[in-house]
């Protein structure tokens, strides 16, 4: 078949239609490509965020590029995070400690979010990248899952204790987080995002039970994914951690793409979700060669991965979780090239 555009390739794969090759995503943010570190200054600098995304697009030559736009949780909590060098920003101490704290939360409107310095930088970066790359390049944004966000605000241990002893309080907290996330999603899509990535490790079976997932997490995930669809974007859900016990529930999220960790065999996921949901992942960032291996090892690894897939559509090849900034760039380049080489000419 003729060569598809990036967007056509991704859309066809999501719908399990024929593709010229499998789409490949890299994920990760690599400000070192423009000589910057991942820190507070970087995440408040729209031009730097945009230039990083554009450089990643140029160097990696994948089928989509991520443009980070965080900060909504800080607005909800009305609290500032700390900014370790080359690590994610975090609240060092819990900022939500009681029912009173939850009762006092004010869900920021779209307008209030857009006024925040960090949120605004992210949104401006999306606009810059969209203008530079045109309409054919899928841009990915971010909507952190409710339990991940709640854990940042309360501390994960305390969130787990609340879930065991006062689940209604967790529900109330997550309602505020979910509505904040929805408002941020709307802003990102308006700015030019096509695909919203929603990771939630803390609601995965690595932390809570499948029954707790059904009752306390799934409704929030469904609400955000519905909002992503209402805004006109594609939803990619990443239930990060030991996903098999909830794999039967993932279709209920109605996410377009289910992005699995290395704990789920991508070939098995294809067979479960064939013609229903696209599946993503396959590149094991823990035991695979992306971090510790070299380009030749990466090439051989990707060849084996793709040869083992029964279906050559309905699938996006990508790392099994986020990439840290110290993954060798040459390995990422080799990975993308290998996906293109070994899945070329794939139909179904």
């Amino acid at each position: 078949m003729s060569t598809l555009t990036h967007k056509q390739r991704v859309h066809n794969a999501i719908k399990w239609k024929p593709v010229d090759r499998l789409p490949v995503f890299t994920g990760g943010t690599f400000p070192k490509l423009i000589g910057r570190n991942y820190n507070r200054d970087y995440l408040h600098d729209a031009d730097a965020i945009a230039q990083t995304a554009l450089k990643q697009w140029e160097v990696f030559e994948a089928d989509a590029v991520g443009v980070g736009s965080g900060g909504s949780l800080e607005v909800l909590a009305n609290a500032k995070q700390v900014w370790p060098e080359n690590d994610y920003p975090m609240f060092l101490e819990p900022v939500i400690k009681s029912r009173e704290d939850v009762d006092n939360l004010h869900v920021p409107t779209e307008e209030e979010l857009a006024k925040d310095e960090r949120v605004a930088a992210g949104l401006k970066a999306i606009q810059i990248v969209r203008k530079a790359l045109g309409p054919d390049v899928p841009l990915t944004g971010m909507a952190t899952g409710a339990f991940n966000s709640a854990g940042k605000l309360t501390g994960t241990s305390e969130l787990m204790r609340w879930l065991a002893q006062d689940p209604e309080l967790v529900w109330q907290l997550n309602l505020a987080i979910t509505q904040t996330t929805i408002n941020h999603v709307k802003l990102q899509v308006k700015a030019g995002i096509d695909i919203i990535h929603m990771p939630d490790a803390t609601s995965s079976p690595a932390c809570i039970s499948p029954k707790q997932f059904t009752k306390h997490a799934l409704p929030h995930h469904k609400a955000v994914i519905q909002a992503i669809h209402d805004a006109g974007a594609i939803a990619k859900f990443h239930p990060c951690g030991g996903e098999y016990p909830i794999i039967d529930q993932l279709a209920e999220t109605k996410a377009d793409i289910l992005h699995f960790t290395e704990l789920v065999d991508l070939g098995v996921a294809q067979k479960i979700f064939v013609q229903r949901h696209a599946v993503a992942g396959g590149v094991d960032i823990v035991t695979g060669p992306l971090f510790l291996g070299g380009p030749d090892e990466v090439d051989a690894y990707i060849k084996t991965l793709i040869e083992g897939l029964k279906f050559k559509t309905g699938t996006l090849i990508m790392p099994s979780c986020g990439l840290s900034p110290n993954i060798p760039i040459e390995n990422i380049v080799a990975y993308v090239k290998a996906v293109k080489k070994y899945s070329k000419g794939s139909l179904r």
């Binding site: 994960t156 241990s157 787990m160 065991a164 079976p205 039970s209 707790q212």
Partner: peptide
Amino acid sequence: SQEYFLPEVIV
């Protein structure tokens, strides 16, 4: 055996 998860272990 995945009868308990983190909330139960924490309490």
